Amino acid sequence: MNIEFIEALQQIQKDKGISKDILIEALEAALISSYKRNFGTSQNVRVEIDKDKGDVHVYSQKNVVEEVEDDLLEISLEDARAINPKYEVGDIVEREVTPRNFGRIAAQTAKQVVVQRIREAERGVVFNEFINRESDIITGNVARVAKGMVYINLGKTEAILGPTEQMPNEEYNHGERIKTYIVEVKKTTKGPQIVVSRTHPGLIKRLFELEVPEIHDGVVEIKSISREAGSRTKIAVESKDPNVDPVGACVGPKGARVQTIVDELKGEKIDIIKYSKDPAEFISSALSPAKVVTADINLEEKTAKVVVPDYQLSLAIGKEGQNARLAAKLTGWKIDIKSESQAKENQE
């Protein structure tokens, strides 16, 4: 190796942000292994690279002892003092043992180490970029679909959309541009692994933050979300400004804001509910589009007995119980729904 090599390291430092000193330290450690492997020795050695000229030197290291048991690792005090009278037991004697053709081995090792370190540094940059974006939305293009997994191109890396994170009946076509929610960013031996979702309730939250300025600015707050991905979502919102209607802000002019989100979610229905601190009022709103006649609240058990008009019972419960299920999840209350006729029979 030579001065051109040092100049190359300086350029890498400038372009990739990897310290020249860190590269040299890594290279020195790798050259120790290369030396031992190529020259079949188990003796202790130290490799030193001249940071200005790029010259490589190998030094054997032996511990100074009273009685030598392993002459590859130890040297007697008598022999050590023959080299330098100042040596004492416990000191380390170094001698240069740089092989004549070690430059070629060093050059090969340097290339491998530098390439590996650049790759590691680039992976680190990608990891640091995306670890700060957990619980955020990211847009990418479908790169490929294989064995039920959807791989999304994010530019510098790929994200993985697993089977459980995919919306039912949603097809993912090559090159299609989609928004996903970053669930987790993991460090692996092959670089950062970015796990994304299309089913996570957080996707709904972030989409509303993007589309509704009042939510982004903190005037309207999302209190809770319950979702059955691909089918229906209920979202409870509250306004911190009495002059701002939270539901109207989320729906937007002529329904434009919520429609943009529905389109992104391929037609998933979204019920926007006005949050209330009064449990009876909140539960009644959560069962929308059904109209509630009465709601009897048990605060201790956190249960609610709700009565709806006879003709709206099926609407309140929903197909396969979905409306009632989502309302219960949205409010955090156990809800028992009865029609007016059923409630009357129970009273009698």
Rank of each mutant, 00 (worst) to 15 (best):
M1C: 08
N2D: 15
I3W: 01
E4F: 14
E4K: 08
F5Q: 08
L9V: 10
Q10V: 00
S19D: 15
S19G: 04
I22Q: 13
L23K: 11
E25G: 01
E25C: 01
A26D: 13
A30D: 08
A30L: 09
S33T: 15
Y35F: 15
Y35W: 01
K36P: 06
K36S: 07
F39K: 02
V45K: 06
R46W: 02
I49P: 01
I49V: 14
D50Q: 07
K53R: 14
K53D: 06
V56T: 12
V58K: 10
K62C: 08
N63Q: 10
E67P: 01
V68R: 07
E69Y: 12
D70V: 03
I75V: 14
I83L: 13
K86N: 13
Y87V: 08
E88A: 14
E94T: 15
E94M: 12
T98M: 11
R100I: 12
N101M: 02
R104E: 02
I105A: 02
A107E: 13
Q108I: 12
A110K: 03
K111D: 05
E120G: 05
V126D: 09
N128T: 00
A143R: 15
V150H: 07
N153H: 13
L154A: 05
K156R: 15
T157A: 03
E158R: 10
E158M: 04
I160F: 10
P163A: 11
Q166W: 06
M167K: 14
P168K: 11
P168H: 11
N169F: 15
E170N: 12
E170Y: 12
E170S: 09
E176V: 10
R177H: 10
Y181H: 04
K186T: 06
R198V: 10
H200I: 03
L203C: 01
K205W: 00
P213L: 04
I215D: 07
H216G: 00
V219G: 01
E221C: 01
E221F: 01
K223N: 03
K223V: 10
S226M: 00
A229T: 09
S231M: 09
T233R: 13
I235W: 07
I235S: 07
I235K: 06
V237F: 05
P242C: 04
N243Y: 13
V244I: 15
D245Y: 08
D245I: 06
D245F: 09
G248N: 02
G248D: 04
K254E: 11
Q259L: 05
T260R: 05
L265K: 11
K266E: 06
K266Y: 05
E268C: 07
E268I: 10
I270R: 04
I270E: 05
I272F: 10
I272W: 07
Y275I: 06
K277W: 02
D278K: 13
E281W: 03
E281L: 11
E281G: 00
I283K: 00
I283W: 02
P289E: 02
K291F: 08
V293W: 06
A295E: 03
I297A: 11
N298C: 04
L299Y: 11
E300W: 00
K302M: 09
D310T: 08
Q312S: 03
L315H: 11
G321F: 07
A324G: 05
A328F: 04
G332F: 03
I337P: 00
S341L: 02
K344L: 12
E345T: 15
